[in-house]
């Protein structure tokens, strides 16, 4: 059994994160298209922005921080 590298919950099968952070990652990735169309930001700027905005959900923020710190999003899943 592996545990979520972000929160310590049980991780999903063949994943390093739990179901909540996986859902947050999915949301984060799918929302980038909207952000890019709206403001033309790059992926890195997008993550930076999400970490600064207080409206960002906690799990989304934690995933964004994890990616910013060097984790490849594809390795998280």
């Amino acid at each position: 059994m592996t545990y979520c590298t972000i929160c310590g919950r049980i991780a999903l099968k063949e994943s390093t994160i739990c179901r909540y952070h996986k859902e947050a990652l999915d949301n984060l990735q799918s929302s980038y298209k909207h952000w890019k169309e709206a403001s033309g930001v790059s992926w890195e700027e997008y993550l930076e922005k999400l970490c600064q905005i207080e409206e960002t959900g906690r799990w989304v923020f934690e995933v964004a921080e994890q990616i910013k710190s060097g984790d490849d999003p594809s390795k998280l899943t």
Partner: peptide, 12 residues
Amino acid sequence: EQKINLFVPFPF
């Protein structure tokens, strides 16, 4: 709480 934690804000 889950909805809040999973929320990705959109700009406008």
